[in-house]
Every structure is written in structure tokens, then in C-alpha cells.
Design a protein around this nucleic acid. Structure first.
Lengths: 375, 375
DNA sequence: CTGTTAGCGCATTCAG
DNA sequence: CTGAATGCGCTAACAG
């Protein structure tokens, strides 16, 4: 295979002009069926595919979307981007769009990368993850009229229904509320929340979900929620220590919902270490680690997030990547995905009342290999 | 910004012919310094960048490497590909190479994707991960003369020093041996190995590392290694159960090395549950989860793997992506990266002799936030 | 050192 | 419906 076949080679093989081949490829409807067949056979025979760069040059669009690969998201929930990427790539492929990666150490570097990628006509649009309050990236992109969508809503910046840019996000409120209601339905009556310090829009959203469920079903008036409301950094150890303190100070607690699987794992360890391995705990992210350890968790439905992102960018129809004018867009310019709860049989970290697991019970403990997943 | 500036715009702005601009970009040496300066100013002023597609078309190469995003690698060590991707993207960027993603459900689908990507001149070369014995992909790629490098050596297929294709791999033998020696130096004298069932080249390689260290330093003659040699699937629960059994049947065991962090985590849980939270355990992969929990582990040095892959593909010099002829290549056609051990203070899953952690010791337990990392 | 000429492979005008 | 032109933006040959 010395040289890739060109459209001309196909034309010669099919005994037509090269324009006819182009038509078969791009406007098959206007070609006489029998000629089309002949051309298609030639295409298959030569294993011809249009030269991507040539086509992109001609079409004046790259049909490529770029996304930044974070240096390292937090430990346990880190694989989140990984899974989102997979979903995005898969859906993009179906639309004839390619996903290009880039890296950057900080927002300024990311803007610079975006600038380069744009100036080189390498990329048509961008997907931004891990947006935050007052994010300089979104400002710059809007300013420079670069098509993009964020995974994460623009917290507090502007009207959610008519924001300055496209966004997709997961409804943390709904997810955490569902998790909490699940525990309540299962009999819990005093449920704590382990979340991040305020000012994290995402974290506050999830906290409100817990709060809503608890106020709705457990403390119709207004309980002492503050005592059940933990705020720690997203670290296993911090969560563990805080939960140990909580459980020691309030023995009536019979359930815990957490803003992340990292926190939930810390909580599990804490519960086990104070002899409460039976304590129901629900995390958020449905991380692989959580799966491995049988942690119930709220799944972010990354497939839907990816689909939403592409729909907003490309329109629901095809892969046209023509950004619709903000003003002209009749339908919504965002998607709020409802996550769903995944319930698992927890892998007990430790038998509740023995230092050593008696041989007799070993099998019972080890029997949760295939934790059923609901919904 | 209606239309991107072209080389012609720059030429006009700098009062030179457009070829001169091209020269400044590609062969700066042959342009008179003062003219060059003038052109460079114009380039900066217009924020000009060569149109990637046009350049690729002209150069007859895409300067793009594609890599498949796995559906989902195993739970805990899953982020491995994630980190490798990051390293690869970063290094590629430095060489002016872009990384494109694609997905495929199985090897056949992957081959089909590769075929398409190649036929469309979208991609110059590929990086293959998770290769296995008798992998159809490598055969096909060699057959069709597609430039590629694998992350993973061709186990048993052909001469490692003159293989049919380029490869990079991590020296599991050396890594596991170092881990084992570390435990021995720290005083362990009876060290078990938790690995995968045989037939996994990678797993066997790691097992041999443990074996070598143990035979070398602990059982010069030949001990009853079989009793210390566990084989389980890469699942937390399986590892836990097997290690519980091992520790109960042999109380002299004072160290454990594991073929993955998943296994190591299972081992940690097992150790804690039989009152041996003090048991030194070392994993493999240096996964984020392991970090979070203070697990010592063998780090795969993915930066070096990525660099090696690109060097093999592009040559050490630049980003030329001209595959050197197999026969003509004087230097090696592979890289074997030596991993390094990362030692951490383990986060105790549980106080060794108390059901509840006394308040007084809580700080001590929680104080390992920034585990020092050696080497 | 600088300017001119000729494609890379494709899609999109226009004529027939 | 099909065939013959034009140029997307660039670089590599040349000639000056």
C-alpha cells in the first residue's frame, strides 16, 4: 500500500467522473442507482475513504472536538473523567466527530492551548470540565466566540435558563435526595451528610438534596440539621476522622449520605472502626472503587452527559457542528441529567464484633461477589 | 474574527512573499534575521497559526497518533490508562503530535476502526494497550504495515530483542523484586505473594520478581514457596478471602507483595480483619486509591513509558513520524522501563486492638495526610 | 536569500 | 444526472 487511493482512483475504477464519486459520497440521492452501485463497489474494492485533511480543508471545518485531560483529578472519583471521555468518544464517533486530547497545568495554560488549537483550525469546539465559579476559561471563550459546552453549570453567574454558554450537568440535588429517601424508606430516621465546605456549587447542590429529603420526611419542622451536616475536604482521612467523631457524639445516627465516593469510603472505614459496619452509607459518583467494595452510590449517567454535550454542540440531528445562534435557539441551551442510585451489598470491611473472623462465618462474609444493582 | 488569517495575510502585513513566511516557519535558518523578525512580528500581531489541515494535506502526514480508550479496565487500577494518556498527550504535544481517541468493543472492532482511521489518512500511527498472547491486532498491523507501538511486550511470541513490532513495557520482575527486597531489608522474613493465575505474562513476570528476591535472600536453597504463592482473579473480595485463609493457616507471615493495588487492598482488608493491620503490604500500579489509603506500591513510571513509546515511533530527535526500517534500525526497537517503589505510611483501616478508636489516639492515626514518598 | 509555480485531495460551483 | 473548472491553505521545488 504505497499511496492511499484517491477519489480519482475510484472514479477510474468505476468508469465515472470523479465528481460522481463525490456525489455518491455526499449526496447519494442525486445519483442514478445503478451508477451508484458501481461506484460503491469500486469504493469497497479499493478500501477508499475520503482524505480527512483534504476534506476538512475544503469544508473549512475540522469535525473535531477537543477536551482537556486533567493533570490528576482527586483520587477515588478520578476515573470519572475517564468514563466521560469514553462515552464522549463513542457518541462522537457515531456522528463522525473526532475527539482530540490536550493537557494544561492551569486555566491560563488551557486558554493558551485552546487559542492555539483554534488558530490552527485544528478543532471546531471544546468541552470544558471542572468549571468553577468565576472561571476565566468560560469568559474567554464567550468573549472570543469559540463554540464550547461545559460539563458543570455556571454556578450563580447568570440565569440558568438563558446562560451565556451551553452546559450539561448532573442534578446533584435530585441524586442526593433520592439516596436519602432510599435510606428513609429502608428505615433510617437520622441521616447524616458528609460533604465539602461551602462555596463549592456542586457540593452545596448535593447537600441541599439531602436537606430537602430530611426536612420533607424526617424533620418536617426543622431539626438540628447542623449537627448532622459535616464539611470536610475530599480526602479519605478527613472524612474518616469527621465521621468517627460524629458517630461517637451521636449514637442515634443510622444512615449517611456522602457527596463523593471518597468521602463515603472514609465514612465506611470510620463506621467499621467504631463497630458500626452495618451503618448504611451511600456515596456519589459510582466510582470503580466503590463498585469493588460494594458501596451504594449515585451514578452520574455519563453517557447521557456526553450525549447532551454533543447535542448542544451539534444539534440533535447530525454532526454539523454549526453552532446555533444563542438568540435564535428556541429550545434549551443546557441539559440537566438526572442521576440514578445504584444499590449494592456492601463488602464488610470487618466483622462487626470480632477482631478475627471465625472460619465458620468466612464464607458468609465473602459471598457478595456479584452485588445486585438496582435500577 | 470572521476568517482565520492565512499565510498570505501575514506576508502582506510583513511586506514579503508568502514563501518567506513559510520559510520563517519551517526553515528559519535560511531567512535573513531582520526579515525574519519582521515576519515574526506580523505572525504574532495576527495571531497566525498555519492551518493544520492544509499543512497535513501538503505534508502527506497527519502528525496524529490514535489510541483506543478501553471500555473499562478493572476497578482500582483502572486509572492507569488515564494517567498514561495524560503523559502521552503531554509528551506528544511537545513534539507537535496530537492524540486522537477512539473506542472499540473488541479486537475485531478495533482493527476496523484502525482501518478506517488509516484509510482516511486521519492518523499516522497507533499506540496499543492491553496486548495479550496471540493478539490479532498486532498481527494485522504488522501485516498491513501500519506503524504502531504496544504498551506491553509480545509475550513469548518472538525474540524480545528483535520483535516484529515496537514495544514499551514496565519491568514487573524488577519492580516486584525491589518491593520484596524492601520488605526483607525492613525485617520481613516470610513474605507471601498475591498474584493472578498463570498464563498472564504480566502476572508471571511479577511473580518471578518476588520469587527471585525470596530465593536470593530468604530461602537460598528452596523453601516451600508454593504455600506462600497465592493466585486469584483481580478482585478485591477474592484477594481478601485468600489472604484471610493464608494468614490464618500460617501465622509466621510477616509481609505481602501483590501483583496489583486491587489485590493489595483486598489483602489490607484481610489483614485488618484478622487483627494484623500492622502487616506490611506492597501493591503494584501506584493507583490513586492506593495513594488515598496510604498503600505502598510499585509505580509504573508512565511518563517514561509514554516517552519511550513516542521515541520508538518518532525517533528520539523530533516529531517526524517516519518509521525507521526494522532492519536498518541500529538501536533497540523496544524500551523496558524500570518501575520504582513508592513507600507510604499506611492509613490504618482499624485500630489493632480496639473496636473504637480512643479520642486520644485519633490524631496520631489521622496524621498521615502527606505520606512521604521515597525515591 | 527572495519570489514564482505547482500540486496535496476534495467539494462546489457551473455547463452540458 | 454527469463532466470540466476553481480554490481551500500550505510547502517544496525551482528560478531569480
Amino acid at each position: 500500500m504505497d499511496r492511499l487511493p484517491t477519489i480519482e482512483d475510484v472514479a477510474r475504477a468505476a468508469q465515472v467522473s470523479r465528481q460522481t464519486v463525490s456525489n455518491v459520497l455526499n449526496t447519494p440521492a442525486i445519483v442514478k442507482p445503478e451508477t451508484r452501485k458501481r461506484v460503491e463497489v469500486a469504493i469497497r474494492k479499493l478500501a477508499y475513504r475520503p482524505h480527512a485533511s483534504a476534506r476538512r480543508l475544503r469544508m473549512r471545518k475540522s469535525s473535531t472536538i477537543a477536551i482537556r485531560l486533567d493533570p490528576m483529578t482527586n483520587g477515588i472519583s478520578g476515573a470519572l473523567l475517564d468514563r466521560f471521555l469514553h462515552a464522549l468518544t463513542e457518541q462522537a464517533d457515531a456522528r463522525g466527530i473526532r475527539i482530540l486530547l490536550f493537557t494544561a497545568a492551569d486555566p491560563a495554560a488551557e486558554i493558551e492551548q485552546i487559542r492555539k488549537l483554534r488558530a490552527g483550525a485544528d478543532v471546531d469546539a471544546f468541552v470544558l470540565t471542572a468549571t468553577f465559579h468565576g472561571d476565566p476559561r468560560t469568559e474567554w471563550l464567550v468573549e472570543h466566540d469559540v463554540p464550547f459546552v461545559t460539563f458543570g453549570r455556571p454556578w450563580g453567574v447568570n440565569d440558568m435558563n438563558n446562560p451565556k454558554h451551553l452546559w450539561v450537568d448532573v442534578d446533584g440535588f435530585a441524586g442526593m435526595r433520592e439516596a436519602t429517601l432510599h435510606l428513609i424508606d429502608a428505615g433510617s430516621s437520622r441521616i447524616g451528610f458528609v460533604g465539602w465546605p461551602s462555596l463549592s456549587g456542586t457540593g452545596d447542590d448535593r447537600r441541599r438534596g439531602w436537606q430537602a429529603a430530611v426536612e420533607e420526611r424526617l424533620f418536617p419542622g426543622d431539626g438540628d440539621l447542623a449537627a448532622l451536616n459535616l464539611s470536610v475536604e475530599d480526602l479519605l482521612e478527613d472524612a474518616r476522622d469527621a465521621v468517627v467523631a460524629l458517630l461517637e457524639s451521636d449514637e442515634r445516627i443510622d444512615g449517611l449520605v456522602c457527596a463523593s465516593d471518597t468521602l463515603a469510603l472514609g465514612a465506611m472505614i470510620a463506621a467499621a472502626s467504631v463497630g458500626r459496619s452495618d451503618l448504611p452509607i451511600i456515596g456519589f459518583d459510582n466510582s470503580p472503587v466503590g463498585q469493588a467494595i460494594g458501596l451504594s452510590s449515585v451514578d452520574q449517567a455519563l453517557d447521557e452527559v456526553a450525549r447532551g454535550a454533543l447535542e448542544l454542540l451539534l444539534g440533535e440531528t447530525g454532526g454539523d457542528l454549526v453552532r446555533r445562534d444563542a438568540a435564535a435557539a428556541g429550545d434549551t441551551r443546557h441539559r440537566l441529567i438526572t442521576p440514578h442510585l445504584v444499590i449494592r451489598q456492601p463488602l464488610r470491611l470487618l466483622a462487626p464484633d470480632a477482631v478475627s473472623i471465625p472460619t465458620a462465618t468466612k464464607n458468609a462474609v465473602g459471598n457478595h461477589r456479584n452485588g445486585k444493582e438496582s435500577q
